[in-house]
Amino acid sequence: MQEIKFHGRGGQGVVTASQMLGLAYFKGGMYPQCYSLFGGERRGAPVVSFLRVDQKKILLKCEIKNPNQLIIFDASLVDPDEIRKQVVPGTKILINTSKMSDVIERLRDFTVGIIDASCIAENLRLGHVINTTILGAYCRLFESLSVNKVIEAVMEMVPAKKSENAKAVIEGNNRVTLIKGRR
């Protein structure tokens, strides 16, 4: 079972990202289970979203405490100590940042996918909504889901700018940088 945790801020499309990824897995015949925790539903506030994926029905009705996949929408939310407390051996981290060297330094233990999703989304006129770019990068890093399934889910769920979002998935998938960690 994959346990995926999303960290981000209100307005970046974190909740929708987890739901779209869940839908993509669902379309791929898997059993996903997705939920989110909100501090306050407003832009800029930290948001955490969760997704479990398994081949059979998931019975757990509790929180994900030790994710084996971590997706970070905002590098300012990265606290290596906090991450070390949560993750299990082999956890991979996908992170949105424009300062690659900084992240590599701080997360040198982990296998990390680095994507400048904010830049890609901005160029596609998607503003702060970087979720579709992130999902494209996700497919490359975790290799458990095809880009086409993600695009299918994106087309079904995004309310506007469908073609821009589809492009964002592909861009994200192409432009993610993978760095193998020591752990």
Partner: peptide, 10 residues
């Protein structure tokens, strides 16, 4: 609340 109301499942 949450564990069903806001949990997405097939």
């Amino acid at each position: 609340a949450n564990y069903i109301s806001h949990f997405m499942e097939p």
